[in-house]
Each structure stands twice: as structure tokens, then as C-alpha cells.
Amino acid sequence: MRRYGRVFREFFRACFVEEMEYRSEFFGNFAASFFGVGMALLTVHIFFYQTDDLGGWTYAEVLVLLGIFNMLRGFIDFALRPNMPRLLEHVRRGTLDYILTKPVDSMFYVSFRHLVFWRLIDVALGLGVIGYGLYIERYVPSAVDVLMFLVVMAASLLLIYSLWMMLMTTSFWVVRIDDLSFIFDSFFETARFPGSMYRGAVRMVITYVLPAVLITNTPALALLGKWSVSTVLAALAVAILFLWLARRFWRFALRFYTGAGG
């Protein structure tokens, strides 16, 4: 485990150097992130001109949700998104062979080799929005709230990682689509709002089949003190189940790639 920590740090360092090589426009990106969050806030604000609640959530609660959404999206853009097109490249060009000869878990390697560190700005901004939401709501989370929040947040990250990984793994077969991430995005966008806002079949799908709503809603509710032990345990169980599935799928894909029983 500690070795993986070191490898991750090394990936981060190499990416930092790579980023600096192009003197990536840190401030430009910073401004863009700010603008993105500003627009999202404005949208929520406009909604609340018309109504006092959105699927049972108050303005401040929706802000907390938005903050969490922004944080999670920051994590995706930081560690996951940069790796998707590279895996396609590796499969297409055969450089995946190099990765498979390395004494490090290949799934770990392909998902974290490329990191875009300045995307962590979005995580920080998300935290800011959460703080603002809590301030308006005049709610100070208790230690237990925070603990529960951390647990479900970890579960959400695992869940996102697993869903993303499963999508990424399809590149062993779908080598012609350059960027599969739009599929993920269109589904993840639904997590921006309270799940209770959606109706009927859509709500069923994004709650149970592709648990987008679960990913953002449960951490927000936990931080607002509206958690229950059963929800927290359920979130953890779902996360572990999906991680297991993603792992199985990756192994299956590798067996296909290496011609073992495929």
C-alpha cells in the first residue's frame, strides 16, 4: 500500500513537470473554474426565484449539493478524465504491453498515471460552496455528521471510480471512439440536482441502475445532519459492489487482450 502511495506521488510529480513544460495557464484555468461555479450558482439562484424548494430541498441545501457535485467533478477531472483517451491510445498502439510488464497493478496504472493537478481548484471551490451553503442554512455539522459525510464521500468516490473504470475498460473493444467520457458526463450531470426532483422512470434509473443521485445526494444529506446508518451502510455496500464489478470487468478485458480464453 505504501509503495502505491510512492508510485502515485511519482505520477503526480511527473505530471507536474509535464504541465510546467507547457507552462499551462494556471490563471486561465483558475478563472474558468470560477466562472463555471459562478454560472452554476446563478442557475440555482434563478430556480429559487420561482419556488422555495426544489424536490423538497431548500436553497441552501441545494448549494451544499452543488458544492459536493463540484468537488466530485474536480476529482474526476483531476485523476480520471485525463486517463481515458490514453488507455485508448495504449490499446490502439500496443503500448499497453509496457504497462502489463510493469510490477504494479495495471488497473491502478491506467487510471492514475495522468493527473491534471490544477483541476483540484474545482475541489477547493466545491468546498467553498459547501461552506457557503451551510452558512446560509445556519447549520453547523456535528462531528458525527462530518464522520458520516467522510464515509459516504469515500463511497461516492469509489462508486465514481468504478463506473468510470468500467466505461474506460470498454476501450478494449470500442477502439474507434476517441472520447467515451461524454457518456459518463451526460449521466453525471443528472447528479447536480436533488434526486427527488426527478420523476418516474428517470428517477428509478439514476437512483438504482446508475446511481448518479446516490453519489451526490447522500454526502450532502449527511453533512446536513440528515443521515441514517442504513443509508451510509447501503452507500458503502453499493460502492464496494461496483468496485468489485469494475475489477472483474478489467480482468476480463485483460484476458481478452492477452488471448486467454477470450
Binding site: 511519482e10 511527473a14 513537470v17 509535464e18 507547457y22 510490477p103
Partner: peptide
């Protein structure tokens, strides 16, 4: 995009 030394350092971590 970066000097070979960086790849060497990544390999150093990977191969422990």
C-alpha cells in the same frame, strides 16, 4: 513531453 530522467524516476518508483 518531458526529459527521459522523469521516466526513469517513475520506473524507479514502480520497480521499487
Amino acid at each position: 513531453d518531458i526529459p527521459p530522467m522523469e521516466t526513469f524516476l517513475v520506473n524507479k518508483a514502480i520497480y521499487d
